[in-house]
Design a protein around this nucleic acid. Structure first.
Lengths: 324, 324
DNA sequence: CACGAGTGTGGGAACGCTTCCACCGAGCCC
DNA sequence: GGGCTCGGTGGAAGCGTTCCCACACTCGTG
């Protein structure tokens, strides 16, 4: 059985192809009755627009670009980014659309402008970006962009409720009797890093324990170094709250090297609930980050401009293992 | 200036569109003169076929699927896979083609059959597969598949010369005076793992030192466990040759935890020359793995069926740092 | 020297969609 | 009430390919 075309839909809804097209794209004036009829037909026939035909007729493309906005290309290989790519790819697949993975490079403004001009780009998923990157999204591109992470209101944002996760984690170690809690955060350019710190600060302030923060790149190596720095600066530290599992695993490795027991001497928590968190030396206590759901929602919104919410937050829950 | 179309090419080459199409696709009978003229015109005008039009007319799609064939989905987040995706994406980009990332799942035969049927896939890049996966590529799909790694002759293979790299690495540690060299290899299902062991075996046999092999999954955690197992079984071990940087980094972490000095007590080498190898505690001595070039070549061959070599091997050279 | 069997070539109809244009009625103003 | 505009609609022309078919040729063959 050949796949359903727009003509099939139009026929089923008893309207012209033009009207059906207008409804599907969500543009132009259409009466309510017609819209309902077409939508019903789409649903019933399981119509999916042919991306090739679409791009041919419109001159525009459909590809979803996962754009990594970090200053270095290293994060291209990050498991977090890989999860985003995999989820975006799966979501795009249902529409017959492909994905591209791109690093915005040293000059994000330039690359974004190029993306805006490229007619082959149907949507851009922004990952690991700085506030500057966010601000330099060209106006023409805003309608085709979704940020995976916190945004500024101009660009639609799909994000985990990291504040809730971090808060719960910090409260968890405090409840455990820890009093010298160091936050291992990400690099300064990452909005998510600042936000994690804020959540942390609110909790420690309320609890009346000191505020201690170390920033590090989002690699396990940097996590190891950060853990050492933390212990050097505050020898009494009894808990490490990291903003990512990668950081936390690196920290645990360094602690082990230095003969510090986890969680007996120092509790460690991560964030993201990556697959490897479960299998790390002492199972890593962390908070979930439904990357797949987030990326899938963002991709779906990008591909179907009819319904795009400008902001969505996804819950994060604590996963308790043995490291804290 | 509007992009060049096949008609432009045909006009420039003074042939019909049909003939130009035949040349570009590399099918059907065409005279040498016509072929040369068309190819010249393509070159001069910088013609790139419109993927949308192509997929519309042919009913087939163009997407390149990066298919991960590992028994667990974990390797989807592997930096190695990420590099493949990034390179494939870049290569596909030049043709206006998108990429999809897919795990073949618990039942690869099934998923491969689905890919073969899916008219939307233009090519499949196989990564991290077992011999069984390779064998279960349906005949119809073989023409659209390229394996990144060793293959069986049925499926075209684009691979690093791992034997040369491993050999050079083992010889390097032997030249350094090490006599108790343990190979940390990958899981048994991975053809590359067997091949690495064979290269290792040839060298140790020739050198008259004992053969010692530990297999592990390709994660840093598994690397750590493997290193511990190696030291338990052979307390005199003075060198660890790992088949991947990830494994090696994990091993170094475990050694440090256990108070073993690298490279003084035990030399460690990796394979892949991942970005993080340079920055690991003691800089990791490793061998290059030009993943980007390999993936790019494979993708290009997939997208342009005119010139597809059935087998290509890329050189690997030792990068000497401090760990060995 | 007519005959099929190749080879090389061009014409033209799809492919499924977007988009421009023309149309029709209903409401509004002067 | 004749002109508007304006929401709503359908018709039809492409978009750049592929692919099928028909048409020339040029051979070897009977």
């Amino acid at each position: 059985m050949p796949p359903t075309t727009l003509d099939d839909v139009a026929a089923a809804a008893r309207v012209s192809r033009s009207t059906a097209s207008r409804v599907v794209r969500g543009t132009g004036p259409v009466s309510d009755a017609a819209r309902r009829a077409v939508l019903a037909a789409v649903e019933e026939l399981g119509y999916v627009p042919h991306p090739g035909a679409r791009s041919l007729a419109s001159g525009r493309g459909e590809r979803v670009v996962v754009a990594v906005g970090s200053p270095s290309a290293e994060l291209l290989g990050d498991p977090y980014v890989a999860r985003v790519v995999a989820a975006a790819s799966r979501a795009a697949d249902t529409q017959g659309v492909g994905v591209a993975l791109r690093w915005l490079g040293r000059d994000p403004r330039d690359e974004l402008a190029r993306l805006a001009r490229d007619p082959g780009v149907g949507g851009v998923l922004l990952v690991d970006y700085s506030a500057e990157v966010l601000a330099s999204v060209p106006r023409e591109l805003v309608a085709r962009v979704a940020a995976i992470g916190p945004a500024d209101g101009r660009v639609p944002s799909y994000d985990v409720d990291a504040a809730a996760g971090i808060t719960a984690l910090v409260e968890h170690v405090l409840a455990d009797g820890r009093r010298d809690v160091v936050m291992l955060t990400g690099p300064g350019w990452l909005p998510g890093a600042r936000r994690a710190v804020e959540a942390y600060e609110a909790v420690v302030r309320a609890a009346g324990v000191p505020r201690r923060v170390v920033a590090a790149d989002l690699t396990s190596l940097a996590g190891a170094q950060a853990a050492r720095e933390a212990r050097r600066r505050w020898p009494g530290v009894d808990a490490l709250v990291a903003m990512s599992d990668t950081l936390a695993v690196g920290a645990m490795c360094a602690l082990a090297e230095d003969g510090v027991r986890v969680p007996d001497d120092v509790a460690v928590t991560g964030f993201d609930d990556q697959p490897f968190a479960e299998h790390s030396g002492p199972g890593l206590t962390t908070a979930t980050h439904p990357v797949e759901r987030i990326a899938a929602a963002a991709t779906a919104a990008l591909l179907d401009r009819r319904r795009r919410d400008d902001q969505r937050t996804f819950p994060s829950v604590v996963v308790r293992r043995t490291s804290a």
